[in-house]
Structure formats: C-alpha cells, structure tokens
Design a protein around this nucleic acid. Structure first.
Length: 778
RNA sequence: GGGCGGGUAGCUCAGCGGUAGAGCGUCGGUUUUACACACCGAUGGUCGCAGGUUCGAUCCCUGUCCCGCCCACCA
C-alpha cells in the first residue's frame, strides 16, 4: 500500500500534476492542520457587522464594515467601487492604521466591492480572506499573516500579540472604541466555515502546501460517465457528479497530522531547500549535490491513498494476475455521502493510472438516519448500534452507549423523540436477528437519500422471518417421501398449478429487481409471494388435500411434491436477502440430488423455475374472489368462525361454474360451509332469505334467514349499487365521447366495453340482492 | 447565490399516461390442530395548489407554495 501511494505521488509529480505552492488554505487551528475544501462545513450563524473608521491622510475618514474586526490588523488596503461617487475624492489616497505603523492605500476594485452593501468601502486582508486574497493578487498588495498556527495573534499584531483570535476580536473592538473610531454595529447573518474534524472555526491562512492539479484528471473522469463507460445509479447522482467534477478546485493533499502516508519529498538544506521527490526506500540523497536531505514532515490526505484503492489492493504498481483479472471491477456499492471524497477520486486515479475507469456501475444508496430523518450523532442521542437490533437490548443500555454517563431520563427522551415507534415498544428492542435487519434494509428504495431506521419496521420483518420458519415447519410434517428434482413437478390440481405459476412470475420479478439494483422490488416481491400467496392461500388449500389422503393418495402425493419443490426454490429465492434462516431451513428440506452442500453455493432460481400457467392464474382469481365474498358475508353478519353456513353459488358463465365445481372442497374448507356448496346456473329460483354478494360473475349466497338485520343488509347493497352506478356512469360517459373511440387504442376501448358489461351484470345481481334482502325480514 | 430531490391513506413510503398500492396504525371478529410475532373481515386518499398538453394526467409541460439535501469566498 505504502509503495503504491509513493509510486502514485512520484508519477503525478513527474507529470506536473502534483505541485507545491504557497496560497490561501483552510486552516484548522485546533487540529493544526490544513483541510481540503471538502472537509469544511459551512454553517449559518448569527453575527454582527461591525463598522469602524480609518483616518484618511490629509483629513477625513472612510468607514469600513467587517464581521471579523481582528483581521484589521492584517489590512493592507481599503477598496471602493471605482464608480461610487461618494469615494471618488479619495481615490489614490492613503489611510493610517490606528494600531500599527502602516500606510494603507485606498484602491478601486469593481469585482470585490458592491457599493450597495455596508458602507461601500471594504477593508482588504489578503492573508485571511479568499476574496481579499484574490483582490490582493490583482493589486499586488502585501499579504500579511497575523495568526500563529494555534489561532493566536502573532508578533505583527503589536499590543494584541499572543491573544487568541476570539479574545483579540473583543480587544480590537475595545481599542477602536477607545480611539473613538467605532461607527456602528448591526446584526448580520453569516456563514461560518467549520472543521469536519472538530467543529472549530476554520481560518483562511497563507501556507505552503502540496496540491493535485485536478482539471486534467477530472476531464476523463467526467467523460467516462458521460459516455456511459461507468453508469451511476440512481442516475440523478450523475448530475451531481457532473456538476462537482466540472467545477473542481485543485486538491490540497498535505496534512499536518502524525498519522498517514508520509509525503515522499526530500529537502536539501545545502541546495537552498531543493526538493527531491522519489519512491526510493531509506536514506535519500539530494539529486543535485548528493548530500543529506530531510523528508517532508507532512502526511497525505487519507483520501489520496483511498483513491488508489481499486488497483492498489490488487498489487499495483506490479502487474499482478489479480490486477489483470479484477480491474476494472463490475460494481461499486457505497453511500452517496462519499461520492466526492472517495468515488470521484477513485474515478480520477483509476483512469489516470490504469487507463480505464475502475467500475462499470456505481450504486449509491442513502444514508441510514434516525426515524425522523436526522443524521445519527452522539449529541442528538439517536445513535443505534446495529448489534443491539440483532441481539436485542434495553433502551437504557442503548442510550448509555450513545451518551455514557448522561442523565438517563434526558437521554431516553432524546432517543424516543428520534424513534417514535420505539417509544411504543416497551422497554427495549427484542432480538430481531441479522436476517430481519438485513431484509428491512433491503426494502428501502435505493432512490431515497435517506434510510430512516424504524424499529417498528424491523419488528414487522422479524415477524416475516418467523412466518418463514413456521410455514416451513408446518410443511415439513407433510414432506415425508417427497420427490424433488430441478424441474417443476407434474401438477394437475388448481392450487398446485397456480403456485407453480406464481413461483415462475415471482422468480422473474426478483431476478429483475436484483439485476436493476431495485433490491426493494425484489425483497417486497418475494415477501408478497411467500406470505400473501404461499402461506395465505396455497398452504391453506393443501390442508383439505392432505386431509383427504386416504381417499385420493395421488392428489396428496402431487401436492406434497409441489410443496417441496416450491419451498426449496423459495429458500433459494429469499437467500440473498435472508441468508441465515433460509440456509438452516433448506438443510432440512428435501432438495434435488444435485444440490451442493450449502444453500449459499446453490444456483439462484432462473427461468426454468416454476411453470407459467395463465389459465390457473385466472381460475384461481375466481376462486379467491368467491371465497372472499363468502368470508365477507360471514364477517359482516357476525357469524361465529366455527359455525358452518349453507353456501349457494350461481353463475351464468359455464367456465366459472366448472372452476367452482372442481374446487368445491376448497370452498367448503375455506368458507367453512355446511356440506359442499350448491353450484348452479343463475336465473333459476333463488333461495329465500339469503345474503348475496357479487364476485367474479358469481352470485354468492349465504342463507341467513333470521340471523341478519335486513335494514343493515339493504343499506350495504344500496351502498354498493351507488358505487357501481357511479362507475357505470363514468365509463358510459367516456365511451360516449366520439374522440375516445377514435383516438384511444382499440384494446383500451375494448377493455372499457368489457368493464361496462361486467359492471352491468354486477348491477343486475345487486338488484336481485336488494330483493333478497327484503325477504330476510319475512 | 447556484444545483439536485421531494410533497400520494393517520404514519413511513412504492407507483409515474388508461377508473390509486404496500407495511405499520385504526375498527370488528377468532385460542379454526404452522404461526396471536397469527388468521379472517372492514375502514381509510379532491395523489401540495393553479393553469396547460392529451380522447384520457397522480404520472408530461409551465407557474406557484412549502420541505430536505449538496455546492458556493459577499465585506
């Protein structure tokens, strides 16, 4: 690593892309090191605009405004706008400094001065302000550094020397006051630059540092993304990348810290400080005189070496096999907050040293924040250790970890404010497990900048883990003797055909989600399949089939094999999101003979998994709708869940009657009917005193004579009729517009017509239901 | 000051041209022999506001109001 860093430095230096220069930099007075502009946070603050007067030689005064009075000790000019009539008489004159022996010129500068701001006259401190520095360069002003590296005033400051900068600010104001030069103070909003390391106010300071010339490196990095050689996902970030790369400033890479890679630059005192830059080990002789040298004390910015990571980790600068094989990498997955710090630098360095970008795709995910969306930080008391969510922890211990020794009550208050859902969860986190946490994180949309960690959500997915466990445990009781191969088993029964079809569709969906980095789609698709389809419907439908094994063993065998196959494939499907539980269960499940020893090594389900069956999908949706209607009737009329009810199903569609007849046993079990449901063609005489729902072109009738409040039922039907009428009106209106039939695609028009027909049939049924409801009373 | 993103059910968020979805929550019911960390049923939305394009807009365009983030040297 060290070798790679030195090699990179020397090459960039030789190519003229690294240079040493004296310029204004960001200085952290507390850590006593230079910072790059990325390491400085600008924070809004309330301050004041302080006005004081400089006496003009030959009489009069000129008033300047400043937010940092102490910097007047380093003033080397007063600038006014060239066209400002107020100051025209003073052009070319000098003012005298009240505290130090210095004549200061009044200069004109249209770039620096906004005549409308403050007094229209600006004090110029080239050594301590970025604007003033540029102005100083334009006017060849003297750059007077007035600060020591620890933030105290230096010897140039006369009576103020040795004072801390903030103490000096007050002292200067007081001294000006005593001299009668203060002209006013008003509140002023300003932006304070603060160090990301320690929060201290950063001072602009003149200093000699090492820089990377970034423009030549940024251009190819920019081009790589523009040309699609590297794709940034989500693509919104490409714009941010573009913007930053296009406006990039030279990168200050030296740091005055004691940890880090030392800069491989060696100075020769004999040759007036001549610099030898080399990657040689040991004593480095001066390249000019061969004499002794001393190495630069500074170290490199940590992101300099990190920028080399895609190839330095593979053995670079040696042409290793790994380097040939693994560079460039396919995907980088990281948080968006280090897009500039790390990703951009890897792109620049990678392209420069390796000739091509280090990644094909860059996926940027959001930052994990607290439930209210705030960044986790110790001061906010909203930090959660992921291990506490995995293993469980009391809230007391969670806050103690974040704010050791702080008053418990106050810490808990902060914590509960940051995690509203946790405050309703008792006294701590249960042990949700690594799978639940992992699955939860995978359900957040990657487009979101924030991942608000919600304990309640993790709890919900912990329940899913539990569901997987229980469902499999239940199934294992029926899987004795199951035959599982890599091909889907033969299926003749509707539930079996249907679940294989759903497995097929879900496999596509999950694969697509993973391929497109929509892990949330993959995770939620698999969740819905397993819980909403496999558990809620398929497992329930297998129960009557297994129960009927003595009468029809072939059907039970088929179902057993399908169940085994679907579960085995489901484990493989869920494994990327839920590695531990699926491995454990998979080991217990019957699986194909060719399977490897571990699920982690097994093939991910592909297009050969499951079997498309549109007819089964359609028939199943009929069955589900009818069962749903039956259950609704039961629930709405407070039928005890244990009670069996007589069920009559009437439909004018032969195909529907066929499905319902075949699935008679399913209907009996899931609606809990008294005997097999009666299935007949609509139009004949209706049973008296029944409640009727319309579902899937079927009249679902439950005879409840005497058990139901007729008014209540009539109101329900009335409500539904109203809704259907509204829908019918909307579609009829649409169809009546000539423009719709003319311009809309034919399939859309047909769909609307079909919908209208279905609604009309439903309406007829509801009219009947109204009549039936009337009979309930009698 | 510049740039980017967002405002959809009580909450957190998906959807982004063909009559609105999930989880959590809420309400009612159930110890139905995998699971009460469960099951069944129900409730819930003028898709920020105003215009425009279109046969049709939550989805596209313009304007507007809020919210968040990033970048930036106004004394």
């Amino acid at each position: 690593m060290n070798r790679a860093v030195r090699e990179a430095f020397v090459r960039l230096y030789t190519e003229g892309l690294i240079y040493r220069d004296t310029r204004l930099i960001h200085w952290d007075c507390e850590a006593q090191t230079v910072l790059s502009n990325l390491e400085v946070d600008n924070e809004p603050a309330k301050g004041e605009l302080f006005e004081f007067a400089y006496a003009i030689e030959g009489g009069g005064e000129i008033i300047v405004a400043t937010t940092r009075p102490e910097t007047m000790l380093g003033d080397t000019a007063v600038a006014v706008h060239p066209d400002d009539p107020r100051y025209k008489p003073h052009h070319g004159k000098y003012v005298t400094h009240p505290f130090v022996d210095r004549r200061i010129p009044i200069i004109t500068d249209a770039e620096l001065v906004d005549p409308k701001f403050g007094t229209g006259a600006v004090k110029v401190t080239p050594a301590h302000d970025f604007n003033d520095f540029a102005t100083g360069k334009r006017h060849k002003l003297e750059e007077l550094n007035i600060l020591n590296l620890d933030g105290t005033m230096n010897a140039l400051c006369g009576q103020f020397a040795g004072l801390d900068r903030f103490v000096a600010r007050k002292a200067v104001k007081k001294a000006l006051e005593e001299k009668g030069l203060v002209r006013g103070t008003k509140p002023h909003d300003l932006v304070l630059p603060r160090s990301q390391r320690n929060g201290s106010v950063v001072e602009p300071l003149i200093s000699t540092q090492w820089f990377v010339r970034t423009k030549p490196l940024a251009e190819p990095a920019l081009a790589a993304v523009r040309e699609g050689k590297t794709v940034i996902i989500p693509e919104e970030w490409a714009k941010t990348y573009e913007h930053w790369m296009s406006n990039i400033l030279d990168w200050c890479i030296s740091r005055q810290l004691w940890w880090g890679h030392r800069i491989p630059a060696f100075y020769c005192d004999a040759c007036a400080g001549h610099v030898t830059v080399t990657n040689a080990d040991g004593e480095v002789p001066c390249e000019k005189c061969g004499g002794k040298t001393r190495q630069d004390e500074d170290v490199l910015d940590t992101w300099f070496s990190s920028g080399l990571w895609p190839f330095s980790t593979l053995g670079w600068p040696d042409q290793t096999d790994s380097l040939k094989k693994f560079y460039p990498a396919s995907d980088l997955e990281t948080g968006y907050d280090i897009l500039f710090f790390w990703v951009a630098r890897m792109m620049m360095m990678g392209i420069h040293f390796m000739g091509e970008p280090p990644f094909k795709r860059i996926l940027l995910h959001g930052m994990v924040v607290d439930e209210t969306g705030d960044k986790m930080s110790k001061v906010k008391g909203n930090v959660i250790d992921p291990l506490d969510l995995i293993h469980g922890a009391s809230f007391d211990s969670v806050v103690e970890k974040t704010l050791p020794g702080a008053p418990r009550e106050e810490s808990l208050k902060k914590f509960k404010k940051a995690y509203p859902s946790a405050s309703q969860m008792g006294t701590g986190f249960a042990a949700y497990g690594a799978d639940a946490l992992r699955f939860t994180l995978s359900t957040y949309s990657p487009q979101s900048k924030r991942i608000p960690l919600s304990p309640k959500k993790i709890e919900g997915y912990r329940n899913f883990m539990n569901k997987i466990w229980n469902a499999t445990r239940f199934a294992l009781g029926y899987l004795e003797g199951a035959r599982v191969s890599t091909d889907p088993p033969t299926a003749t029964l509707l539930p079996n055909r249907w679940i294989l079809s759903r497995l097929r569709a879900t496999t596509d969906l999950v694969r697509k989600g993973i391929d497109e980095f929509r892990i949330d789609d993959a995770a939620l698709g698999a969740y819905h399949f397993f819980w909403g389809e496999l558990c809620d419907w398929f497992l329930e439908l297998t129960k009557p089939i297994f129960a009927a094994r003595p009468d029809s063993p072939a059907e039970a065998d088929e179902t057993r094999d399908v169940l085994a196959y679907v579960l085995e494939a489901s484990m493989r499907l869920l494994h990327p999101m839920i590695p531990f539980i699926t491995e454990e269960l998979w080991q217990r499940l019957p699986r194909p003979e060719s399977s490897p020893v571990s699920l982690a090594l097994a093939a991910f389900p592909d297009a050969s998994t499951g079997r498309d069956d549109p007819a089964a999908d359609r028939d199943m949706s009929i069955l589900q709708a009818v069962i749903g209607a039956g259950r609704s009737i039961r629930s709405e009329h407070d039928i005890h869940p244990g009670a069996e009810v007589p069920l009559v199903l009437r439909s004018g569609v032969p195909e529907v009657r066929a499905v319902l007849t075949t699935e008679s046993r399913s209907l009996q079990f899931l609606v809990k009917t008294k005997g097999a449901p009666v299935i007949e063609e609509s139009g004949g005489p209706r049973p008296r005193g029944a409640v009727m729902h319309m579902a899937a072109d079927t009249e679902v009738l439950v005879a409840l004579q005497g058990l139901v409040d007729p008014a209540h039922e009539a109101a329900r039907v009335e409500r539904e009729l109203k809704k259907v009428d509204k829908d019918i009106a909307a579609i009829e209106k649409k169809l009546s517009l000539p423009a719709f039939a003319d311009k809309a695609p034919p399939e859309v028009v047909k769909e609307a017509k079909d919908q209208l027909e279905a609604l009309k049939r439903k309406r007829t049924g509801l009219e009947d239901a109204k009549g039936i409801a009337g009979e309930l009373a009698s």
